[in-house]
Write a protein that binds this DNA or RNA. Structure first.
Lengths: 226, 226, 226, 226
DNA sequence: CATGAATGAGACTTCATTCAT
DNA sequence: CATGAATGAAGTCTCATTCAT
């Protein structure tokens, strides 16, 4: 037995959830696929809902880690090096280097996409979960803010240095989140697209230009009512 | 009896679906809210799934109509005027007028957002439906292409005239779709944001700049592998 | 419209009953196949049960008529001839002619089988109906005795003249009935068998020998208990 | 709790099926009579259909065992004796002893009838099941052949030794089957008949004479067409 | 820790029949 | 005679969860 029963349950749940939907997947079928008894599932998770949340929390953290290139199997020395590099990066950004910001954002973006391609099921799960009616939207937002704190910092900095348009933070975050899920979903469903430069570059171009400051003197276009 | 029973069923279904989720809503509760017998629901819709699809199809068409400002209650004369205006618009666009394209896109965008604010339940339903596991993704794409054909034409034209970046069409459509749902959802959940110009303008700015051609000579940034 | 709606309903009912079973066939599907509205069915038949009974009664009489070779489309003159022949037949039988009895029985048998092959659906219906739980077994027996009265007479006569074994009448009738349904069913399901002389002859041979008097002095074989 | 819940469900199902018909019996009423929850029924049987099949299979095997006088409660020594007797029987039959065959057939016949009288419900069920429209006729035939293999052997042997008429095997089996169900049904519905020697003997006489070789030189009687 | 039989409320759907048109 | 929308009770089957072993 290579994996613990708990892990086997989590794996089976993910597989079935993304294929049949969360609500349509019975705890019995999860246990069955995991090769354990129905009761065993409830030893490890208080309820089906708890299993879903556990899965969600795991995945969110995994994605956050992947974006910051913190691979799980790093020893102490490597971690030290890594942390030093990050500090240097932050220094550069503080010095208002435009290319440094763009590079950093693009790094995050590519890491996130790479993770999504490596873990298509986990991506699908992230797309499904917010629409589960039993899922609390506030919980979602909080967890999001917590795991993506490093992104929030980066955006704020960019806006202060006028390297990014002064858009409301919540709008920017929602945009980043949905654009990531959309593009990753597109590449996941049609893997051939992920290998075409115009798709890869285009996806990031939309993100970056969308957040860039306005270059020309375009007038405000907001009109109330019709 | 003002509305037909069939319409009452559709209305009740929408209300319950967006509040409890599609799967969590029982056909019995729909019939109950509509004030009809359970059998009546199945007299008008072959199955719950058929009801969901019917609802979806209706809403998609309604949104499409709203974006083109085709209000349902227009008499013959008004329709004639409308069609004439549209023809003039198309003329302008053909003449490669940059402001005309931006204005047209912005019109669609604002109409869509306005519709979403007027019909928050229908918006929520549009967000929920594609993630229903029983929902066929292909069906979704086809219906989308069909109802949004006018948008596709506009985008193609803009790209040919180099007023829009030469991004892959599918990427553009996916982006527009998801950005609309995201922004509309944001404004729907927090209506106070919808009245702040920086949110309204910012939402469109992201869309427009995201699709605009690159102004400077930015190098391609696609890197393969890690 | 060639056939009356009532007849179309009867035809459709028969077709569906034998293919799906009586209980599994909904009145709606019958009406649908007949091309009439659901309400129309209940104009012509008070209930589904009444429809079933009407069908049964029709078929029983049709079989009875077919065995006596009373084709429906006979004019007055032909009927007169027919009745005269029958009277002659009865004369012969009265005169204790062994071959006449055998011939008469065989005629009935072959007519019955021929009818069954011509009307496989009606045969199937006759096999199904007695097992319908809502069907009264006594009603069945009475109708049977009434329509098959001519057979009862023939058997009694044969036994009095010692051309048939002195078996209890009810046993003989049950045997005839079940053997007919069995053989007809066999030939109906596997039509190729119906054309092989050994099956055709064999079926009748079993019937005839089964009812024949014992030739040798076989001792009684009834043992009580184990 | 004397019997397992599964067995109690089977017993209750049999009782209700033969009294109300298979289709008219709800799974809820079966569970209720068995004193278990509705879910329990579906824990042991995947569907109502599966329950019916399980019941059928059990009964068929029970009948087959009863005909061969294999009572369930036999110890090792008794079984040894039993098997020895059977071997002797087979020896006799090989030696072409006419009375041995008749005796053997009659033994089977009487055992079968005795079983039917002891288990009138199971008999009724055997009569009902083949006419259930959801019941696969092929499945039926195969199960029949499998459980009645010993009869098939006996018949073949009898025909080879010219102790039985050279009738097609399928015809003989169908006849035996239907004649058994008919006679057993008669005796079950009217138990007083079962105790009259003329009925008991008559039933077997029809079977035996029906299968006997033709004694006199009766000409073939098959006529094609009318 | 692990098992799996048992639970019972509730899901979707069917259907014979009625009745206003 | 004919229609078909409407009814609502009843049917089969599902499922998260519990608990004795």
């Amino acid at each position: 037995m290579e994996k613990s029963k708990k892990q086997r349950i989590l794996d089976s749940a993910l597989e079935l959830f993304v294929n049949q939907g969360i609500q349509s997947t019975s705890t019995a079928s999860i246990a069955n696929l995991a090769g354990v008894a129905t009761g065993t599932l409830f030893h490890h998770f208080a309820s089906k809902q708890a299993l879903v949340l556990s899965l969600y929390s795991n995945i969110k953290q995994e994605l956050s880690g992947a974006m910051q290139m913190r691979q799980p199997g790093l020893n102490a020395q490597e971690q030290a090096i890594k942390r030093k590099q990050e500090r240097q990066q932050k220094q550069k950004l503080k010095q208002c280097d435009p290319q440094a910001l763009r590079g950093q954002v693009q790094d995050y973006w590519q890491q996130a996409l790479k993770w999504a391609q490596t873990n298509p099921d986990k991506l699908k799960f992230l797309q499904q979960i917010p629409l589960d009616p039993q899922f609390d939207a506030n919980q979602h937002r909080e967890l999001m803010m917590a795991t993506m704190a490093f992104l929030v910092d980066l955006i704020k900095q960019g806006q202060e240095q006028h390297l990014l348009a002064p858009l409301p933070l919540e709008l920017v975050l929602s945009f980043c989140h949905s654009h990531f899920l959309t593009c990753a979903g597109l590449f996941s469903e049609q893997p051939e697209l992920a290998e075409q430069p115009d798709y890869q570059d285009g996806a990031f171009q939309i993100l970056w230009q969308g957040l860039s400051p306005q270059t020309d003197t375009e007038f405000s276009t907001y009109k109330t009512g019709s």
